[in-house]
Design a protein around this nucleic acid. Structure first.
Length: 972
RNA sequence: GCUGGAGUGGCGGAAUUGGUAUACGCGGAGGAUUCAAAACCCUCUCCUUCGGGUUGUGGGUUCAAGUCCCACCUCCAGCACCA
């Protein structure tokens, strides 16, 4: 038997009944006496049961809600259910139950569970997305977007299950590309679908992130998702070899047959040696379907295109080996070099990004390089790889004048042996290849032959290959000046040892060494030469960085970034921005979702269902398991729906059969909380002005990109329609961490490590579970925390000790100063910790406080109530129970109606503090002095300490650094 | 591969934002209590050759670095053939 314990079931029941009776958590949204604070957590799917993750999300935000109320805020803390959607539908189907019935029963169960946590949710604001009262307005908002052209129809590729004759969501397709349900190999099909035009908002979604007070990882994930790229669209004129008449062919806009490509590297245009089209590119389709004769290898191309179509998304993602087919009969003209270059179709180019076609620059793009290797395509270097010398001798001297010139770096092979020429410099510790400057009027090649002869005397040298151009910035020690050399790197073989006498002056400079490649590696010193050797040994690797342009016509020599846009205008290109973000496909061929409020006239033209016919009800004569005809959505089988359309709109009119993606439902629910029963509007304008944006939004990191981004877009679209008052819906965003199983693994049925929170609530009580979760780690950082049984036991022990404290409480006695000080400190610490969502240190502060109170003989009832007030957000039930016991002199009915305890500031200031004493920065002792003591006093006190004296030669410091109340540092 | 974040005892984690590193809790050891055990209570618990040393590693800035700067290593998260 514990010395003191309490019956948590009793006190929880009593407290919860009391709160309900007092209607303590109903928020008056129109209250003008208090500051509004909108605190929200992500509303759950009705998954059937609350798991520990739900507790973590709801209970910890509840702690903050209770704290804010005590701070005098008017807190809106609502909840609801994201009730439509696949998870509910699948769960119901798996159990063989009706989706609607199962979903609503499931929500009822979860509501009860949420109450057991002691959350202070205002249930009068509850929203359920599958209620017609809610989706009425989802539909209304959709029609508003439709009117703006922001909701539109387009064709999209979907996952098609040929056995079940149905469309599958990505989640229903297994990693091997088969359907979860039927096991069939999933195919790709192009269907007409509804989209929301989120890409129109890409730029604003991006720039408006910057001022938000979110953690960098959340912001960055959104930026990556939007994926902005600045570049240019360039046109490549196309020539049809097999059918010259087509060369006059013009596109829809009357432009000559030319192919648009998007590139972020127009500066490398001179190095574009071929062009690649995505297999989905309209030209490929057209060439195969309408003009098969333009391709000499149409059969082969067709085969390749078919093959890539069958490839699943995942396959394409995992297997990144290049493949492709040349389009025989079509060539393109590089607009910069005017050279004729080949055209390929390859699936490494994505049809839906940019123009679905790229110019390939193998010298400066890794993917293009890989492809070029495969097909033996030319690699033309146009950007020199720069090296600024960073190791002596020859470190580039910043700010000093620099001689810019062309030069050669020559790797010379011995005429007989497998050895190479190295030059050991005599006046400086350089080991180099043969180098030289290119004189006016000479080519680098001529310079090579000349330099070999002048500097080494060898007469018979053969240039085998030009390897590359490197750009060296270094200090030429013998010449005593900075040089910036565009170094043309050559590989040369000596034919024989015929040589003439070398000029004595040249001979003075360096000595020839014949070295193997391994020896050469150690011998060579300048960075440019090291790189040249590397390329000689391992071959050219694509260089994707910046540098000066080479072999780029009139642009040669200029900085690539600086010349970029000039090259674009020279090629008559257009500066373009592209985004990775695609428009949001919202059609779902499922039953359990918000019906898309669209009907089609006899010509097939879509019309929004007029407002007076909303809500556009989900028919009840079909259900999740109903199969629509020809693989259409379940609603296509609904007679109820078809009849409704004919009755309202007339013969020949047909309904839209698809339902909306659940992320549409959840994109605006925070607006509905403000006016959940409103049947005149989706929300209330005055209340939105008062309450938006949501002050703090807590949720899972899995929703960082999709939900958060979609909600931001939806809200911005409503802002443009004048329907909401601000540009962003959420101010602060906190991603919570993950509670792991006791084995440190993610909880999953597969590992058999799923813990049921109800068991712990039953055994230790809701308060212990709440406080344990609060203590497990910082809630404001998305870490992951393994569940420890010992942890929750210790938390119950802590609560028992608090319960035991009540026996020390005395009515009518004075507070002691130590008790007051402890309370003041804890109250301040808990307040600042909770504000930052640092629940773990808030709990720790409570523990420190309790340890101090335990040392007291007696506790005044006033102090004890203060203690309960600080405890109340974290352990609301126990605080309430103890409050009832000791609060006879208090006027408030509930501890949760009290305001946060205030203490005299002077209680936080100590008369004496212990500060560290350092000698030369090392801690040697400590002194106990007043935080306002003068430097003389502090030093005098410190010199009393023998340890300090001992380490302070001379007995007195020459210099003193004194930060009152913090540190004393004595410098000998 | 790219981008972002983080590395502190046996473990979860603290650290007034540059000022006594290891708060609080778990685990462990010893004791008290008990016929005995559980529970409860008390004490100790980074290393040390007792000089001192210690925040992933190596440098730097500073009177002073877990905190700031540079390089490297490791882990986590997001994106991933996006031209």
């Amino acid at each position: 038997m514990r010395k003191e314990t309490f019956n948590h079931k009793e006190i929880e029941k009593a407290a919860q009944a009391k709160w309900a009776e007092l209607d303590l958590y109903r928020t008056d949204l129109t209250d003008t006496t208090k500051d509004p604070y909108y605190l929200m957590f992500e509303f759950p799917f009705p998954s059937g049961d609350l798991h520990i993750g739900h507790w973590y999300a709801f209970a910890l935000t509840d702690i903050y809600a209770r704290y804010l109320r005590a701070m005098g805020k008017n807190v809106l803390f609502p909840m609801g259910f994201d009730a439509f959607g696949l998870p509910a539908e699948n769960a119901a189907m798996k159990r063989g139950l009706d989706t609607r019935t199962w979903t609503y029963e499931s929500m009822e169960r979860m509501r009860t569970q949420v109450r057991t946590m002691g959350t202070s949710v205002d249930w009068s604001k509850e929203v359920v997305t599958s209620d017609p009262e809610y989706y009425h307005w989802t539909q209304w908002l959709f029609t508003k977007l439709f009117e703006q052209g922001l909701a539109y129809r387009g064709s999209a590729v979907v996952n098609w299950d040929p056995v079940d004759n149905t469309v599958l969501a990505n989640e229903q397709v297994l990693s091997d590309g088969t359907a979860e349900r039927s096991g069939a190999v999933v195919e790709k099909r192009r269907l007409e679908q509804w989209f929301l035009g989120i890409t129109k908002y890409a730029e604003r979604l991006l720039t408006d992130i910057d001022p938000l007070p979110w953690k960098e990882d959340i912001k960055d994930a959104q930026r990556a998702w939007i994926g902005k790229s600045d570049g240019a669209t360039l046109s490549f004129v196309i020539t049809f070899k097999n059918d010259p008449t087509l060369n006059d062919w013009r596109d829809d806009k009357g432009n000559p047959a030319s192919l648009a490509v998007f590139t972020t590297r127009p500066d490398t245009l001179f190095g574009a040696t071929y062009v690649v089209l995505a297999p989905e590119h309209p030209w490929v389709t057209r060439a195969l379907e309408d003009h098969a004769d333009v391709l000499s290898n149409a059969v082969e191309v067709k085969k390749y295109v078919e093959k890539t179509k069958r490839k699943s998304e995942r396959e394409r993602m995992e297997n990144k080996e290049k493949s492709g087919v040349k389009l025989e009969g079509i060539t393109a003209i590089n607009p910069a070099t005017h050279e004729e270059i080949p055209v390929y179709v390859a699936d490494y180019v994505i049809g839906s990004y940019g123009t679905g076609a790229v110019m390939a620059v193998p010298a400066h793009d890794e993917r293009d390089f890989e492809f070029a290797q495969l097909f033996n395509l030319p690699v033309t270097q146009v950007v020199a790889h720069p090296f600024k010398q960073t190791t002596e001798p020859g470190v580039y001297r910043e700010g000093e004048p620099t001689l810019v010139k062309d030069g050669i770096i020559t790797i010379i092979k011995h005429w007989k042996e497998d050895k190479y020429m190295g030059l050991a410099w005599k006046k400086v510790a350089w080991g180099t290849f043969l180098t030289g400057g290119v004189d006016e009027g000479m080519t680098p090649e001529e310079t090579v032959i000349k330099e070999i002869r002048e500097e080494t005397g060898y007469l018979h040298a053969k240039i085998v290959k030009k390897l590359m151009v490197v750009d060296g910035l270094f200090y030429h020690v013998p010449k005593e000046k900075n040089q910036h050399v565009h170094g043309h790197v050559f590989y040369v073989e000596l034919v024989d040892d015929t040589k003439e006498t070398v000029d004595a002056e040249e001979d003075e400079k360096h000595e020839i060494k014949w070295l193997t490649l391994d020896e050469m590696e150690k011998f060579i010193t300048p960075d440019t030469h090291k790189h040249a050797l590397e390329v000689f040994k391992n071959g050219y690797a694509p260089y994707t960085g910046d540098g000066s342009l080479i072999d780029s016509g009139e642009f040669t020599g200029r900085d690539n970034e600086e010349a970029k846009w000039d090259i674009v205008s020279m090629a008559s290109g257009e500066r373009t921005t592209n985004y990775r973000l695609r428009d949001w496909l919202v059609s779902r061929q499922r039953y359990w979702g918000c019906p898309i409020p669209i009907v089609y006239d006899p010509e097939g033209k879509p019309h929004a269902v007029p407002a007076e016919h909303l809500p556009w009800l989900l028919p009840t004569d079909v259900t999740s398991t109903t199969k629509g005809p020809n693989g259409k959505a379940p609603l296509a089988a609904s007679k109820e729906l078809a009849d409704r359309v004919v009755t309202i709109f007339g013969e020949g009119w047909t309904p839209e059969y698809d339902t909306l993606d659940v992320f549409v439902d959840s994109s605006w629910y925070y607006l509905r909380y403000l006016s959940p029963q409103n049947n005149q509007a989706f929300s209330d304008q005055a209340l939105m002005k008062k309450w938006m944006p949501v002050d703090r939004y807590s949720g899972g990191s899995e929703h960082t990109t999709v939900h958060l981004l979609y909600a931001r877009f939806f809200y911005k679209a409503l802002y443009d329609l004048g329907l909401v008052p601000t540009v962003e819906p959420f101010n602060e965003r906190f991603n919570r961490g993950l509670i792991l199983g006791t084995d440190g693994q993610k909880m999953s049925k597969r590992w058999g490590n799923v813990l049921n929170p109800d068991e712990f609530v039953e055994k230790y009580g809701a308060d212990a579970v709440r406080m344990y979760l609060a203590f497990i780690g910082p809630y404001n950082e998305a870490g992951s925390y393994p569940w420890k049984h010992e942890g929750i036991e210790s938390m119950r022990r802590f609560l028992d000790r608090i319960y035991a404290l009540r026996t020390k409480v005395q009515e009518g006695i004075e507070s002691t100063i130590p008790a007051q000080k402890s309370l003041a400190r804890a109250s301040q610490k808990v307040a600042s910790d909770l504000t930052r969502f640092k629940t773990n240190t808030a709990v720790s502060a409570l523990m420190v406080l309790m340890n101090a109170l335990e040392d007291e003989e007696q506790i005044s009832s006033k102090d004890f109530v203060s203690f309960l007030e600080v405890l109340a957000p974290l352990a609301p039930h126990l605080a309430e129970a103890l409050y009832e016991e000791v609060s006879k002199s208090e006027s408030a009915q509930s501890v949760h109606s009290l305001s946060w305890p205030e203490f005299d500031q002077s209680l936080l200031e100590d008369d004496t503090v212990v500060i560290g004493v350092q000698v030369a920065g090392k801690t040697r002792g400590e002194v106990s002095i007043s935080p306002t003591a003068t430097e003389e006093k502090a030093v005098a006190a410190a010199l009393q300490d023998p340890k300090v004296l001992q380490s302070l030669p001379g007995g007195a410091p020459t210099r003193v650094i004194y930060v009152p109340g913090r540190i004393l540092n004595l410098i000998p």
